[in-house]
Design a protein around this nucleic acid. Sequence first.
DNA 1: GCGAGTTATGTTTTT
DNA 2: CATAACTCGC
Length: 722
Amino acid sequence: MMFPSTNKRDDAFASELTASQQKAVFHRDGPLLVIAGPGSGKTRVITCRIAALVSSGVPAYNICAITFTNKAADEMRQRAFRFAASAGAHISTFHSLCVRILRRYSEVAGITPNFSIYDDSDQSKCVKQAIVDCNLNTTDFSPARTLDAISTLKNKLIDADTFEKQADDFFSKTLSKIYSRYQQILKDLNAVDFDDLLMKAAFLLENNAAVREELGSRYKYLLIDEYQDTNHAQYRIAKALASTHNNICVTGDPDQSIYRWRGADIRNILDFEHDWPNAVVVRLEENFRSAPCILEVADRLIANNQSRKEKRLIATKPSAGKVVIEPYEDEVEEATGVAENIRRLVDEGVSLSNIAIFYRVNAQSRAIEEAFIRSKIPYQIVRGVEFYNRKEVRDILAYLKVIVNPADKIALLRIINTPARGIGKTTIDKVQNFASRCNIGLYEAIRTVSQISNIPQPTAAKLTAFLNMIEGFRKNDSGSVAEMVERVFTDSGLEKSLIAEGAEGKDAAANIEELISAAAVYDKQTETPSLVDYLQQIALFSDADAYNASVERVALMTLHSAKGLEFDNVFIVGVEEGLLPHERSADNENETEEERRLFFVGITRAKVNLFIAFARYRQIRGQTLRTIPSQFLFELGLTFSESSQRNDTSYLESTISNHQSSIINNQSSSLFNPGDIVVHKKFGIGTVKEFADMGDNSVITIAFNAGHTKSLMLKYAKLMKL
DNA sequence: GCGAGTTATGTTTTT
DNA sequence: CATAACTCGC
């Protein structure tokens, strides 16, 4: 059988395709479910499948592959398109596909194609407004929780009208009001949030047969990777797209489902056979990635999940590599230890690009970074959205948004006086009042500023000048995004104001230069570049998209971003109760199981060596806290010391031994005894020197590890005993 | 209208 | 602790 070549690695791989892999790759028509463990080559199977379909006569144009991140899409495109005939297949994420569909069928979808895509800070502003508009206050209705509830509804494809009908209790009724108002606000601003993209596309496909059939015959073969992490909206989109041809192929691993909190519904993959009765099921349980010892611990760990179908990980690699659990005293030593391990690996000839550090929360990256800077280890933090969240970048993007979509009031308010041009709060309020009285948008109101009676002439002139500037940008849109960014930067006065700021502004200006280069890359890579398309694309960027595998740097990322990647050497840090599993999932068994899957995902990224680290003390939000090793560590079936080898407990023992006699004498007669280790909210950890139990008036003397000794009134001191 | 300084507040993971 | 929101003086 001739096998289409995709890339070198795939060639080698193809010549030794297992029987199951062949079955999946060469399956032609009808539904196909690939249940595939980590490292089983499931993404490669999809890539090969695209090529196989093409070589069996299916035009690439008729193939649509959906990946989890833009990065994964890029990679798949690159590999699939090595087999030239595959070029033209549509490969993207669900969200990007929806943007494309909504733009193409904007009229039917009831949306203007230049819509803004709102990120969570924009969303938060809109929902706050919605809450206020409903005569509620944001203390009773927390914007974050409200947004969460709305997001959950949208992911289930329950729109505001439907929810209004089913809301029966007070809370639901209130939420329903906010939801409706929030949607109205978004509509007025010609904006959508992430969930709207899916919801609107799903409704469009379901309610409009013509669109559904047109897209169904365009995408005759639908392939979806990471299917275990799709939500209900994505499920319905997939179902609608595949309803005419039934050629749907999904791959996934229920054990790697880590986005339930975001609406991912594991039933999508579990019920696939039920949904598509004649589905062919292929299981890929062989693992071609990791050393047997790594798979062994992964297997033992995941076996602790109750709600799971048993699945084995079959090792195919020869024995090599190791798994170690390393205890450290605190997060600084942990980071230093990781750095030392890396130095050792480098001495053995390991390339930095073969090393990754995973952590549960982004805040953990700081200690690691500091250690790497000290040890001069080059690293890259995989946080793509961070760049686009910088103030100066957001400012420029807000200009672009207004140029594309003047109805975008959030963006307009951001730039109307940035840089300062004499349009202050009072003026803006006046224009806003006028706008709402006339029932027009803010931008339109500025256009008719002469009609606003109480704005003084000089201020009106400033508003008009601002408007003319934006209109000027709009008229001179050549299509090149880089050119536009550059023009906006200089003509808006932002460049000037940054230069005036001095050193800090210089950094900011450098970031804009970077933005211009990035835009230039976009211009070059896109067939018909446009500002609208550019803005809608970058709105969908994720952290994982920033990972650059080709640079000689250690990669630092969250466990979530690690999905789909692999490294020879993996470090997972902070494996402690409260962090992994995260404290917010402690009271819920389902959530604890998801945390376990997250750890499982992290572990199975490692090809050769796996280093798992935890610290006995950790600074969390400025407080040093005593930690407990994660329950997951004990589930790995390895032996490990619970105290750090380096310092052992000397740090504690030295303080305790000074007071040993008093401990014995006093027994535990009172609340606190000399020698007790306590934590103070502000001063951190310390040792009790003296304690006189006088009920409400007790005074306690503590020698804090920070160096000072303090006597505190017990009733105010809020101490925690360790 | 502007910006510095202060105070409140919220803290997981992300398309 | 880190950032956002807010106050107050210029």
